[in-house]
Design a protein around this nucleic acid. Sequence first.
DNA 1: TGCATGATGTTCT
DNA 2: GAACATCATGCAC
Length: 201
Amino acid sequence: MGRVLPRSFYARPADVVAPELLGCIVESETPEGLVAVRLTEVEAYAGEDDPASHAWRGPTPRTEVMFGPPGRLYVYFTYGMHWCANLVCASDGVAAAVLLRGGEVVAGEGLARARRGARPPVRRLASGPANLASALGLDGSWHGSDVTAASGGLRVRRGRAADADEVIAGPRVGVTRAVDVAWRFSLHGDPTVSPPRPRAG
DNA sequence: TGCATGATGTTCT
DNA sequence: GAACATCATGCAC
């Protein structure tokens, strides 16, 4: 396994950090066991300059973690039933985060499957931001967690670096503002990338 | 294969 | 009161 990504990795703009996270491993360890996901799809969100970001209108109780130091987890609850997880980026005082949109379960498949209500095929276990959070067992109690501590319950490890021509950039999914910004990054043709998925070929 | 829709609660206007 | 960084299902083709 690769080494745990240091805080300095996250202390850069979200659109720089995001593509470098592709191929990295997110690991959650709880009393239930360990689940690891290799990231195949992420999205960058900036702060007050990005109208699609939750942090656009300045800090609120919900978003203040995004304005804090990098390397922590921003978890939010949406559509009345789903949790989504972000990694906080940029320097302390500057809002930025990378939304974890999808990945491939590489360890703890049984536990990940047990956490998902439905019975999806393996490729869909962590495909989509709410599904990924669910597979890792992430919810509001993880909000603000430090992901740079090797002893913490949540870690991100450097994986095999993605080749530049494997990475696809496109518009972000599910947003109605700043749709022209190509800050969604995914691994070309990977079956775990959530729709709309670029077709291979 | 693809679109329309219901579930369900927090946040902000 | 409306919007929301979603998902699974059901039905049409």
